[in-house]
Computed example of a mutant assay.
Amino acid sequence: MAKEDFTLAEFADRLGRVRARMAERGLDWLIAVHPASIHWLTGSDAKSYQEFQCLLIGAASEPLRILTRHGEVNEFETCSLADEVFGFGGGETEDPIAAFARLARRHGLLGSRIGLEVPAFYLHPYHYLALRDLLGPDRVVDASDLIADLKLVKSAAEQACIREASALCDKGLERFIAELRPGASELALAGAVYETLLKQDSGIAASPINLVSGPRSAFSHGAPTGRRLAAGDFGNIEFGATAKRYTATIGRQFALGPPTRRMRELYDTVRRASDAMIAAIRAGVPASVPHEAAKRVITAAGLEPYRVHLSGYSLGPGFPPSWAESLALIGASAHRLEAGMVVTIEPPVFIGKEGLGARIIDNVLVTETGAELLSGVSRDLIIV
C-alpha cells in the first residue's frame, strides 16, 4: 500500500518540515490540494484529483483530515496516513465547497490565517473563488510553493525510487530501439515501450508518451499516430516510467537511414547544449545557469529562434497530466539547485518551417560537486 512505501519516520519528518515552514509564514492552517502534496504527506495514491479534494494541515498537532469524493473514502482510509477522511457526494450530486464549509466551521478554520494551494489542473476557478469568499480574502494567502519547494530535495529513499524508474526507462528505450524499423507504426512502437514498462512493473507515468517521425518531427509534444515510419525519417521519442509514483524520463533522437547534414547539425547542437547544462549543474548554482549555458550553445549555432521552451525541470512523484515539479530550468527561475534534487536535461530545437526538430532528454541527480547522469543508455543519435 502507498502509505508503506516510506517509513513512518520519513512521513513524520515531512510533516514536521511543513509545519515549521507554516510557522515561518505565520499560518494557522494549510489547505493542500495538489495530489502530489497529499501523496507526499499521507502516502495516498488515490485517483481523486479529477474532483475537488483537499488535505487540512494544522500548524500544531491537529489530525490530518482529508476531504474527497465519496468513492475514494475507502482507499484513503485503507492506504493513506490521513487521521480522518470525509466524503462528499455519494450517489448524488453535492457541492464540495458546502462539504468543506462544514469541516471548516467544525475545526476552527474560519477567522484563521490560512495558506491555500492553487495548483494548475486540480482546483477549479469557481471552487477557488468560493473557498476565498468562505475563508475571507484577507485571511487566505497563496501557499502553492510551500510543500512543492520542500519536496524538491529527495531523501535517500526517494532517490532510490527515481533510480529504479530510470532503470525502467532504459529497458523501455532498449525495446524501442529493437523494434525501430521502416514500416513500423508510431503507435505500435509506443505499444512495445508500454508493454515493456508494465511487464517490468513500472507504474503508469503521469504524462503519455511523445513519439513523432518524418514530417511530424518538428512537433515538440506530438502523440504517436498510425503513421508508418519510412526510410529517411528523422524523429524523437520521450516517455516516463515510475516507481512508487516517482518518475524518471528519457528522450532520444533517431534516424532511419543516414541522417542528412541538417539533421546531424540539429542533433549535434542539442547534444552540445545538453552537455553544457550537465557541466554547469552543481549544488548552489541558480537554476537559470544551466539554462543559460544551453542557450549560449544554441544561439552560437544560429538556432535560438527555434528554442521553444524551458531547458528542464525537477522531477518527483507525478499525477496526470504532468510529472514536472515546481523548479524550472529557465531564465526567470528564482530557485537555486541543491544536492538531492533531480532535474531533467532537455534543451530543444524545433523548426516548423523545415519539419525538423531535435531533443535529447536525460535526468541528473544534483550533487555537491556536479551532476550524476541517471540513465545508462547511450545518448548518441539512434541510426537504423
Score class of each variant (00 low, 15 high):
residue 274 S to A: 15
residue 39 H to F: 14
residue 223 A to G: 00
residue 232 G to S: 13
residue 313 Y to A: 13
residue 111 G to D: 07
residue 346 E to F: 01
residue 78 T to D: 09
residue 127 H to F: 06
residue 313 Y to I: 03
residue 276 A to N: 02
residue 186 E to V: 03
residue 126 Y to K: 12
residue 74 N to I: 05
residue 27 L to G: 04
residue 357 G to H: 11
residue 51 E to M: 07
residue 205 A to N: 14
residue 283 A to I: 01
residue 320 P to S: 11
residue 103 L to V: 12
residue 282 R to T: 00
residue 190 A to S: 13
residue 46 A to I: 05
residue 227 R to S: 11
residue 13 D to V: 03
residue 87 G to N: 05
residue 23 A to R: 15
residue 51 E to K: 12
residue 238 E to G: 01
residue 171 K to P: 00
residue 352 G to S: 12
residue 306 Y to Q: 02
residue 131 L to A: 05
residue 366 V to M: 02
residue 130 A to L: 10
residue 174 E to D: 08
residue 174 E to A: 15
residue 115 G to E: 03
residue 99 A to F: 08
residue 156 A to K: 11
residue 205 A to Q: 09
residue 211 L to F: 15
residue 110 L to F: 10
residue 351 I to V: 14
residue 165 A to L: 05
residue 82 A to I: 07
residue 284 G to N: 09
residue 232 G to C: 14
residue 62 E to F: 05
residue 230 A to N: 07
residue 220 S to M: 14
residue 322 S to C: 13
residue 211 L to W: 09
residue 47 K to G: 02
residue 350 F to K: 09
residue 34 H to L: 04
residue 161 C to S: 13
residue 384 V to D: 03
residue 308 V to G: 02
residue 61 S to H: 07
residue 119 P to L: 12
residue 31 I to C: 02
residue 190 A to E: 13
residue 267 Y to H: 15
residue 61 S to A: 13
residue 16 G to Y: 01
residue 178 A to Y: 09
residue 303 L to P: 00
residue 140 V to Q: 06
residue 234 F to T: 03
residue 121 F to S: 11
residue 314 S to F: 06
residue 175 R to C: 10
residue 195 E to D: 15
residue 59 A to W: 00
residue 151 K to T: 10
residue 102 R to K: 15
residue 325 E to W: 14
residue 207 S to F: 09
residue 87 G to K: 04
residue 186 E to H: 01
residue 88 F to Y: 15
residue 220 S to Q: 14
residue 238 E to D: 05
residue 312 G to V: 07
residue 43 G to Y: 07
residue 351 I to L: 14
residue 236 N to D: 13
residue 27 L to C: 04
residue 204 I to T: 12
residue 133 D to L: 12
residue 23 A to P: 00
residue 340 G to N: 11
residue 119 P to Q: 11
residue 83 D to R: 04
residue 105 R to Q: 15
residue 331 G to Q: 12
residue 151 K to C: 10
residue 260 T to K: 14
residue 231 A to C: 01
residue 31 I to K: 01
residue 48 S to I: 02
residue 80 S to P: 05
residue 6 F to R: 13
residue 188 A to W: 08
residue 189 L to Q: 09
residue 37 S to K: 10
residue 374 L to M: 13
residue 189 L to D: 09
residue 259 P to F: 10
residue 63 P to F: 10
residue 298 I to N: 04
residue 343 V to W: 01
